[in-house]
Nucleic acid binder design. Structure first.
Lengths: 371, 371
DNA sequence: ATGAAAGCGCTAACAA
DNA sequence: TTGTTAGCGCTTTCAT
């Protein structure tokens, strides 16, 4: 059962007794064709089951109506939502999405760039691994517009849509300090990426500002297995191991900031097993506000990240660049506001648990400047 | 700063003083070219920064080395892992991935099919919405190989890689019944899809087999908002609302099976607030074994789903079909085994909580048959 | 309003 | 081993 060969403009032209050219014009809505001819051609095309050939079309047009998306790990719910938002927004504007996964591996990332250059995608939206950036520069030099998301590359001349993690971590830390803790911990994953560094900076700024003695402050790195495979779940087990080894030495009345909510899963268990109480003994704030955060016991305070907004903004920014190909405006760096959702896990000693969760937003900012 | 025009075979040919054809042969590794010529050409191509044009290549070759992937909702962690697995496996074989999101909406699904036909993707891997299937038949008739994943369409002639939810639910229900409960509840999302129906069937078979009186058995449907947007988190809030309205009438010593683990988040909270104890009063088993399952308090028993295996198998199945284009073997229907991970939430009254979680796997099966 | 011809970049016959 | 020719399906001059 060999399926029917694909119907082409030729076939339609032959069927209606007109030239390929006319058929093309009729179908693409050009106005140099009589309405009756067009209707007739459309009818025949429909009857024959004509579907335009994107390859041929793109080859001559020089644009493929496709954006390449490179993500480190789609299993991370933050990125999963980002992908959804990008796809949705792109689809509205008629763009398809070529998805590539780098798994935090620069080699995969380079391969992704190669792939995008072969395809000649119109633009790329990227969460960079942040290990090497020559390939990005090459991609941009080849004429592809690139928008970085969540992680920036200061040496690459392209737009960026991200989150001010420094400030978010600073504010979350202040919130913990405000509950009256007298020592502070930060759990961060063991990756050399700017988002982690920024959170550490914000955390450090807060504890320094409040004058916490150095020996009352610790940054703990949770080993990550994210390099190994993109299908791995997040690092709850690792944070559990770390927390268990730390929990005995954990002073009462301390605050813990977590680089992501999954750390809370491991930490909660370790504390439970050690008989430590949240928030009485230990007060906790996470990052990400994953679905489960509000349903843990006690409910986890967490910094909500604007993943959908980020995805939408990245697409819009890309399309804007595509719209005026020529102009050479300096790179746009936009930060989108997070929201500290305060729940029971960081309720201060004297505070009555609020009925509705209080929210506190960082303000939105957009910055323009050269590189 | 107009970027340099893309380097073509022509450019290389001109540079080395040979024909386009020879350059093509040299670069694609054909053996009708002297080694020294090839080396020379490769060097020049490299120096010039040549990148093959996929569009042009695909146009003449008639294959695009791309597989279309249609998913209902990438924010569902099960599908997120599936996507990762598919991308990874496809990449190994040199395939790119065009990702489309249907959001449980048949219109979007139809658009996705249209898009894939325009592209002329070599194959498609699909989680169907299960509302209408003409478009799938059209896609297949056009010569595109399709593999369905997780949800089957019995009237469409293509391969399927899935999970035996009926059996999994049956076994999970038996497990609950074995703990000595004398009433059974099932929480299922409010979607008309085969996976939900299958779990209901399995649940029903188990309770019937054990002779539970009809008034001791209930299937509750959790309203879903999944249609609204693919970036929405899963339905913890909805299950909480439902659970809260039900929990007062919930008899002690009952068992609850959940269509997905997110329902546990809402249910746990509702039970907590009502002062009901898990597993003493209520015993629970979820579906999905999401990362947080083992870290809830008490740890949630859950049916682990082989998402990675499913993704890998789907790609392999697709590539197998692609390999022997001609042959017309009947559709392959493969089921991959789940694993019931028993944890504290379903510990029977007399059972000591196991130190390591006991696991129980359904057996793997592959079936062949027409349609 | 319609047609003829050229070409997008590449590969695959067929020659030489 | 290398070159010439043709063509994948489409769009875009330039004629008519």
């Amino acid at each position: 059962m060999a399926h029917a060969r694909r119907v082409t403009l030729q076939d339609i032209a032959a069927a209606v007794g007109l030239s390929v050219n006319t058929v093309s014009r009729a179908l693409t809505g050009k106005d140099q064709v009589s309405e009756e001819t067009r209707a007739m051609i459309k009818a025949v095309a429909d009857r024959l089951g004509y579907v335009p050939n994107t390859m041929a079309r793109s080859l001559v047009l020089g644009q493929v109506m496709t954006i390449g998306v490179v993500i480190t790990n789609p299993s991370n719910p933050f990125y999963a939502r980002l992908i959804s938002a990008i796809e949705q927004r792109g689809r509205v504007h008629g763009y398809s999405m070529l998805l590539m996964v780098s798994e935090e591996n620069p080699d995969n990332e380079r391969r992704a760039v190669e792939s995008m250059m072969r395809w000649g995608v119109d633009g790329a939206i990227v969460v960079p691994v942040q290990a090497g950036d020559d390939h990005w520069r090459r991609l941009i030099d080849s004429g592809t517009r690139v928008v970085l998301v969540n992680r920036d590359l200061s040496d690459v001349d392209c737009d960026f849509a991200g989150i001010d993690y420094e400030r978010s971590a600073y504010e979350a830390s202040l919130h913990l300090l405000d509950t009256g803790v007298d020592s502070m911990y930060l759990f961060e994953e063991d990756l050399r990426i700017s988002t982690v560094a920024a959170r550490i900076d914000g955390f450090t700024r807060a504890v320094t500002e409040r004058g916490l003695p150095a020996d009352a402050v610790r940054v703990l790195r949770v080993p990550t297995r994210r390099h190994e495979a993109s299908t791995l779940p997040w690092e709850a087990a690792e944070s559990y191991d770390l927390a268990r080894s730390v929990v005995a030495g954990l002073p009462d009345n301390c605050g813990i900031l977590l680089g992501n909510d999954y750390f809370a899963l491991g930490l909660y268990r370790a504390l439970r097993e050690a008989g430590r109480r949240i928030p009485d003994d230990v007060r906790i704030v996470g990052f990400g506000d994953d679905t489960f955060a509000g349903y843990l016991d006690p409910a986890l305070s967490s910094v909500r990240l604007p993943s959908e907004q980020l995805g939408t903004a990245a697409v819009d920014q890309l399309l804007a660049r595509l719209a005026d190909r020529a102009t050479r405006t300096p790179r746009v760096t936009a930060f989108y506001p997070t929201e500290l959702v305060v729940r029971a896990s960081s309720a201060g000693p004297a505070v009555v648990p609020a009925p509705a969760p209080a929210a506190r937003r960082t303000r939105a900012r957009t910055r323009q400047g050269s590189s």
